[in-house]
Design a protein around this nucleic acid. Structure first.
Length: 572
RNA sequence: CGGGGCAUAGCGCAGCCUGGUAGCGCGUCUGCUUUGGGAGCAGAAGGUCGGGGGUUCGAAUCCCUCUGCCCCGACCA
């Protein structure tokens, strides 16, 4: 592509509403443009990256035995009623009606549609297992779209679904897909990690997530320094304290703590560590108008996924509002505690292990000190309610846990018959009996990978694309073309030659000053830059520089092919 | 959804408090000069100040309302 024919100008300043680096750079480089909140257009350079990611995904899906399809993005509501998800999916499901007043939705995921295909087409165990996949636009009406295409409402996803005669076959395919995913992310050139995950709303028992590692990631992922244990923090069990709870010491006393609301403030005022405080959180109960109290040690954080699994607690987790808290605790948030509560109380294992702890007194401006379970309040039901913290023992018993940030770009699930049973997607087994097919589903956020790649790979100058997904492998910068016909001929010839050799080449043939061209090269992040100027022309050399290099290399024209092969070593 | 904020040229912003002919930087266009790290000079185009309503002789500015967008939020107990 000739840059002179691309009518998209790069920008020095990013729009004020872009917050994270990938969003800013994508806008400045002209990869995307916003149409509405969470809805983006992909411009030529951005689309090339998307297509490269898609190509890798498609190749590996095909290699894993997947069959590509394209399913409709608009779904009849009736299909979603069959599985009950029309009612439980919530406002993220974009619903609308056609001219006949019939219900439809824009597909946020395609289990229903895929299962409908399966139940129509699949008749016999002899046809199984089968993997269908598609690469297609999804829409999820996110509460708060943000971070550009990272958390967009409309996005491109690869979703695959597998159908099986039994769980053993599902597990086999699950493993195949796990390996395919690992290859996909290796081939993108990104640093990634697979972790065990909570299967969440989609259901099933086995589940792994694939995360691109980046400090700006929204997810916390946990791994052991003593084993290969790795999991999403949501799914990591916290260790249960060992040994007996220390015996109660001094008598419980009430102390005035005016204007002291947070654990930090309380622990500073009373000069006790946060780990000797108990914080009380009220969440909405499963039964209407009930609340449940959750007690967590002061230095710990509530894990919403774990809490929502408690039988008395509403799923998804919803915090009680101030009015509900006042009603049950007789005080405002900031002074609440577990002593004397009339509602169901759960204590995290670590909180249940506390003796002589500090907590709110259920009276505004007061806290209690030297509080003890059994002696001062009934023993609470215990559960794992907290996020693990760095240094906790690994759940598999070897090593301690460390925490890193990640961007979730892939997720695979063993679904079982969660969809096939209600939708009656059955086949005949060897004995001639109808059985519901266990299913797996496997997703990759194609457009999110593009943003994640930038989050992980950028510098002050701009994007640094991994070669495999870069919009172009090579950029030819021709300096002062207008001054020398000879220079122009040489640049043209090089562009033609490299293009015909199969390289994706961007030719900066604009009549712009050198500084402008160099700055754009860095912003666009093309892996290899070749500069043609008067300097090397007569000497028969060309100036080469990798995007991450700090210096130029002058390569003899004859040696250019070797240089490029080495620099761009493309894995496949 | 709750709370906060913003909306003025393609992008970034000022002007608003204290009402009186809409500005700056970048970008764009023309010309000349310049040409190895986002050039200089001269000129130009481009805005119904998000929409609607009100107050006023007069509204970007004050008031009401609608819309759009952004940020924060279940981690405060």
């Amino acid at each position: 592509m000739r840059l002179s024919s691309l009518p998209i100008a790069t920008q020095k300043e990013a729009p004020a509403d872009a917050e994270i680096i990938s969003h800013k750079l994508m806008l400045r480089a002209g990869l995307i443009r916003k149409l509405a909140a969470g809805i983006y257009s992909w411009l030529p350079l951005g689309l090339r990256v998307v297509r490269n990611v898609e190509r890798i995904v498609r190749e590996e899906m095909n290699r894993a035995g997947g069959l590509e399809v394209i399913l409709p993005s608009v779904h009849p509501g009736a299909l979603w009623h069959e599985t009950g998800r029309w009612d439980i999916y919530g406002p993220e499901l974009l619903r609308f009606k056609d001219r006949h007043d019939r219900e439809f939705c824009y597909g946020p995921t395609h289990e229903e549609v895929m299962t409908d295909i399966a139940r129509r087409e699949l008749r016999s165990y002899r046809q199984l297992p089968v993997i269908f996949y598609q690469i297609q636009t999804k829409f999820r009406d996110e509460i708060r779209p943000r971070f550009g295409v990272m958390r967009a409402r409309e996005f491109v996803m690869k979703d695959a679904y597998s159908f099986h005669i039994d769980d053993a076959s599902l597990q086999e395919t699950y493993q195949v897909m796990y390996e395919a995913y690992s290859r996909i992310f290796e081939r993108t050139g990104l640093r990634f990690r697979s972790v065990m995950a909570d299967s969440g709303a989609i259901g099933g028992d086995v589940s792994h997530e694939f995360h691109v590692l980046a400090d700006s990631g929204e997810d916390a992922i946990v791994f052991s320094n003593g084993s290969d244990y790795a999991a999403n923090i949501e799914a990591t069990p916290a260790p249960v304290p060992e040994g007996h709870r220390p015996a109660p010491g001094a008598t419980m006393e009430k102390i005035a703590t005016p204007d002291t609301h947070t654990i930090e403030e309380v622990s500073a005022m009373l000069n006790v560590p946060a780990s000797a405080c108990a914080k009380t959180l009220f969440v909405c109960g499963h039964e209407k108008d009930t609340v449940v109290a959750l007690i967590i040690r002061g230095d710990h954080e509530l894990n919403a996924i774990k809490a929502a699994k408690l039988p008395e607690v509403a799923d998804p987790l919803q915090m009680a509002n101030t009015a509900q808290i006042r009603k049950i605790a007789n005080s405002n948030p900031g002074s609440v505690g577990p002593v004397g509560l009339q509602c169901k109380v759960y204590a995290d294992h670590s909180a249940a292990h506390l003796s002589d702890f500090v907590c709110g007194a259920n009276e505004d401006g007061f806290h209690l000190r030297n509080v003890n379970w059994v002696r001062d309040l009934p023993e609470a039901a215990t559960a794992d309610l907290r996020n693990v913290i760095a240094g906790d023992a690994s759940p598999d018993g070897s090593g301690t846990l460390e925490i890193a940030r990640g961007i979730e770009v892939g997720h695979i699930f063993g679904l079982g018959t969660k969809y096939s049973a209600p939708m009656k997607a059955t086949v005949l087994d060897r004995t001639g009996k109808n059985v519901a097919m266990p299913m797996g589903c496997y997703g990759i956020g194609v457009t999110r990978i593009v943003a994640a790649a930038i989050e992980q790979n950028h510098d002050e100058g701009g994007i640094i694309w991994p070669t495999a997904i870069a919009p172009f492998q090579i950029v030819i910068v021709a300096l002062n073309l207008q001054k020398s016909a000879k220079l122009r001929e040489a640049a043209e010839a090089l562009y033609q030659r490299l293009s015909s050799q199969g390289y994706d080449v961007l030719f900066d043939d604009r009549d712009a000053r050198p500084g402008v061209k160099f700055a754009d090269c860095e912003l666009l992040g093309i892996p290899v830059r070749l500069v043609i100027g008067e300097r090397g022309l007569d000497a028969g050399t060309i100036e080469c520089r990798g995007r991450r290099d700090s210096d130029n290399e002058n390569i003899a024209m004859a040696a250019l092919d070797d240089y490029l092969r080495k620099k761009l070593q493309i894995t496949s």
